[in-house]
Computed example of a mutant assay.
Amino acid sequence: MHLREGSDADTVSCVALFTASVHGLAGEYYTPAQCHAWAPLAPDMGFWQQRLAGLQCLLAEDETGLLGFIGYTHDGHIDMLFCAPTAARRGVASALYRDAEARLRSRGVGWLRTEASLLAQHFFLRQGFVSEAREEVERAGVLLPRYRMSKTLD
């Protein structure tokens, strides 16, 4: 596995991985209706191009293709972290997160924050984040629970 910075050319593969991840991994925590509202099977690519353009993205790949990606901002917001269902629990998310955190530390960022899905909350707790509040966000008229989390860097 190797990590690299993402580019506009990666949008289609990142969106496909996001959709597969939500439908393939989050179903244990979310209903089918919630998964479809969160990750429509016919994604709005214009929305995704704009969303990813506002983020620093790191991708994890191997000879089989894209394994996962993380999107963050330079002020310490971890916006997205998704792995392909076939790459789950193989260290992909951990490698992506460690690299992003190191990059943010090198920029002098002292505090990280994220809005974690019910599935991702466990991962972020293991990385030293604390849950600040459970909240709900609306997508396509459907409410999705998530956790607002943060971590102070040493």
Rank of each mutant, 00 (worst) to 15 (best):
R4D: 14
R4A: 11
R4N: 11
R4I: 13
R4P: 06
E5Y: 13
E5S: 14
E5P: 04
E5W: 09
E5L: 09
E5D: 13
E5N: 12
G6L: 03
G6P: 02
G6Q: 03
G6C: 07
G6E: 04
S7G: 12
S7Y: 01
S7R: 01
S7V: 04
S7F: 01
S7T: 14
D8T: 14
D8Y: 07
D8V: 08
D8N: 15
A9W: 00
A9N: 02
A9V: 01
A9S: 02
D10C: 10
D10P: 06
D10E: 07
T11I: 15
T11E: 11
T11Y: 03
T11C: 15
T11Q: 07
T11K: 03
V12A: 15
V12D: 15
V12M: 08
V12Q: 15
V12W: 01
S13A: 15
S13W: 03
S13I: 13
S13C: 13
S13Y: 02
C14K: 06
C14G: 04
C14A: 14
C14T: 09
C14S: 13
C14F: 05
C14D: 04
V15S: 00
V15W: 01
V15I: 02
A16V: 06
A16C: 06
A16P: 02
A16E: 15
A16Y: 01
L17E: 03
L17F: 04
L17P: 00
L17R: 01
L17Q: 02
L17N: 03
F18Y: 01
F18G: 00
T19W: 00
T19K: 00
T19Q: 04
T19A: 03
A20T: 05
A20F: 06
A20W: 04
A20G: 15
A20V: 07
S21E: 11
S21R: 06
S21H: 05
S21Y: 05
V22S: 01
V22A: 02
V22Y: 00
H23G: 10
H23S: 11
H23P: 05
G24H: 01
G24M: 03
G24F: 00
G24V: 06
G24D: 05
G24K: 00
L25K: 05
L25Y: 06
L25A: 15
L25M: 12
L25I: 14
L25Q: 13
L25G: 08
L25N: 10
L25F: 12
A26T: 09
A26G: 08
G27P: 10
G27A: 10
G27D: 09
G27M: 08
E28C: 10
E28N: 12
E28Y: 09
E28R: 14
Y29N: 11
Y29L: 05
Y29I: 12
Y29W: 13
Y29F: 13
Y29D: 15
Y30P: 13
Y30F: 14
Y30I: 09
Y30M: 08
T31Q: 05
T31F: 04
T31G: 14
T31A: 08
T31R: 04
P32C: 10
P32I: 11
P32A: 12
P32Q: 07
P32L: 06
P32M: 08
A33C: 07
A33F: 03
A33Y: 08
A33M: 06
A33P: 08
